[in-house]
Design a protein around this nucleic acid. Structure first.
Lengths: 186, 186
DNA sequence: GTTACCGTACCGTCCAGTCGGTACAGTCCC
DNA sequence: GGGACTGTACCGACTGGACGGTACGGTAAC
């Protein structure tokens, strides 16, 4: 039993991963505690032991995303101090890349938005911090902001599955964003 | 009573406006039929007479937004044929402007996303058509797409109230978008 | 009278959250 | 070492409320 648990990983983590799977597969409206519990192979009671309310689960989901984005930026820095263009570009590829964790996030954000708006605090704070950083840097603020906003827009469209770009078009767009990111820091 | 109705306008229109108010004030999760009926000063039965299901109400909401955007573009054309840059710019100011109808839309889209994904069809189709138009034009596709995506991103952030730009910053961004729109058609 | 429009009352379902349990691993005391 | 007790992790049936939708009755206009 102990070995089995070790193989499955700690329940809390399993629940979070299951929630991401559920939300990206069946949509935010069907993100029920029962569905998550089932996907995580945990009982509802067990789930609620780790997350005392649905809201706390959603907050954890949002936090998880912000953390992964942060990690992605830190990774791009790679010791090099003060290369903000590179950071921005790392954001672009990180957010629009294939990492399943970030992929599920757009949907999770929607889930959060559907519920009480207060739990968007995590994301709001992250955005505010980033905005302040860019404003304080030597960047062309408007241009850097446009890039970030376009990334958000594309992410949203793809999360909602309303995007209609061909793979080639999408690649062109990403390239254009990378170029704009460079332009913003010059 | 009849006079009062006439003053308030037809019930169907009142319901749609009330739905936009509700969704933008309390969020998509609390967009209930009861809340909309109450806000529109109509009974639930009256509401369901005009919109036989909640989904039909949401679809009408989405349609309303698409129509208003379309009208905004038509208005910008103003007889001048074939000035796509001007159309794109009209979109920007239209979508990001102060018109209360378009302002509520981001939230409505979120509402739609929370429910069955099929009812995003209206919006998906509109985006596909626009994408095709741009691709067929003489525009720098990637650039034009970036502008549209950035508009979406800003719209989304503001709908979710997670935007943190100062009015001056926001104005700079809009100006940058207008400039980019010009650049895309050259 | 028939149609359009709107109201009241009610029903069924879904779902978050509760609650009384179980299993088990310490650990403190005698 | 063995009983009593405590804390952690988890289970699953149940409940209470919210909400979409139905049934049906009334009324004004044509």
């Amino acid at each position: 039993m102990v070995a089995e648990q070790a193989a499955l990983g700690p329940a809390r983590e399993r629940v979070l991963e299951a929630a991401e799977r559920v939300v990206s597969e069946v949509g935010a409206a069907r993100l029920t505690l029962d569905a998550v519990a089932h996907a995580a192979a945990v009982s509802k009671g067990g789930l609620l032991y780790h997350f005392p309310s649905k809201e706390s689960l959603l907050i954890a989901l949002a936090q998880r995303y912000v953390d992964s984005m942060q990690m992605c930026i830190e990774g791009a820095k790679g010791g090099l101090e003060g290369d903000p263009a590179r950071e921005l570009k790392a954001c672009i590829v990180g957010i629009l890349g294939d990492d399943p964790r970030t992929k599920a996030m757009g949907a999770a954000l929607l889930a959060a938005a559907s519920s009480d708006l207060t739990l968007l605090e995590v994301i709001r704070e992250r955005i505010a911090r980033y905005t302040a950083e860019v404003a304080a840097s030597n960047a062309d603020f408007a241009r850097a902001a446009v890039v970030a906003l376009a990334v958000d827009g594309l992410k949203m469209r793809e999360s909602l599955r309303i995007s209609s770009f061909t793979p080639e078009q999408r690649q062109d767009i990403v390239n254009a964003l990378l170029k704009l990111a460079d332009d913003a820091y010059r």
